[in-house]
């Protein structure tokens, strides 16, 4: 595995992943020997091509699936099925970790936006007055007050993302797991989301963003973990170092080489969408 330096440790470990492998029942391995440390306040981009296992790893970190082999610790405690059956641990964990799914349609299942925002704090048994206050705050922060009584199913993609993110923030999480957060968004909504994520990062939230979009990784993360198409972690390091490592990016299918001509000069070079490239002629 390539690693230019060790992960920037802070005082508190959020996730400790040790030699984790995972396969869905009857299926091939989706994750192989994943070892990873994530620290409080980090902004991490989990980079990899389609089907490299990024989303599955996020779901394991969120305690929605459990490793076939290996261990995961969250906030110093083992993250196991048995642990999540204990109501006190389950509530504490679910409050501290929020996950935004790639497809908002599975995440938005309530009849109105207001109910959607109230869902998490209510399930976490917060007092109703506090829930209402959190809903008001989220409506304000997400600029969706006018959508309060609308059905989430009837909203545009950008509005749905706002509601989905608002629905996470009402629980007051310390860690956000974001699965392809900008997928399917128009440029204005993407920009709004990027600014909000930067703002949340400034507020000290730990954010782990799964994406294959290098531009997004540069915007939202300072640390990158790269997964190969063989479902393994092949590198981790500062995002700025990573985007300069073109051989690695080509190898893991995060960029591709393409051929084109400038006048009579025809050449092949790696192509970084949105990041620009230099021509040596």
């Amino acid at each position: 595995m390539t690693s230019p330096e060790t992960s920037p440790k802070t005082s508190e470990s959020v996730f400790t992943v040790r030699e984790v492998s995972f396969a869905y029942p009857g299926g091939p391995p989706v994750l192989r020997d994943i070892t990873l440390d994530l620290w409080r306040g980090q902004s991490v981009a989990l980079l990899g091509a389609n089907a490299s296992g990024k989303s599955t790893l996020l779901q394991l970190l969120d305690g929605l699936h459990f490793p076939t082999t290996g261990t995961i610790h969250a906030f110093g405690e083992p993250l196991t099925e048995a642990a999540l059956e204990r109501p006190e641990f389950a509530r504490s964990f679910r409050q501290r970790v929020g996950m935004m799914f790639q497809h908002s349609e599975v995440q938005l299942f309530c009849a109105t936006v207001e109910e959607e925002l109230a869902f998490a704090p209510l399930q976490l048994r917060m007092p109703e007055d506090e829930v209402r206050q959190r809903v008001e705050d989220a409506l304000e922060l997400m600029e969706i007050r006018h959508l309060r009584d609308r059905s989430p199913q009837s909203l545009s993609g950008g509005e749905q993302k706002r509601v989905a993110l608002g629905g996470l923030l009402t629980a007051g999480p310390q860690v956000l797991l974001l699965d392809e957060p900008t997928a399917g968004l128009d440029p204005r909504s993407q920009q709004w989301l990027l600014e909000l994520l930067t703002q949340l990062r400034g507020a000290g939230l730990t954010a782990i963003t799964a994406t294959h979009d290098l531009e997004l990784a540069i915007e939202v993360a300072d640390w990158a973990v790269v997964m190969s198409e063989e479902h393994q972690i092949v590198a981790q390091g500062p995002v700025s170092w990573l985007v300069g490592n073109l051989d690695l990016l080509l190898e893991v299918n995060l960029i591709h080489a393409h051929a084109h001509a400038h006048g009579s000069v025809r050449h092949v070079h790696p192509h970084l969408h949105g990041l620009g490239h230099e021509h040596g002629h």
Partner: peptide, 24 residues
């Protein structure tokens, strides 16, 4: 697939089998 996705999304936000509503 949807059922699994929706259930995961509900679990991720603290649903434990007993739905809590806004108007207690």
């Amino acid at each position: 697939r949807l059922a699994e996705g929706v259930h995961s999304a509900m679990t991720a936000r603290g649903y434990d089998g007993d739905i809590q509503t806004l108007h207690a």
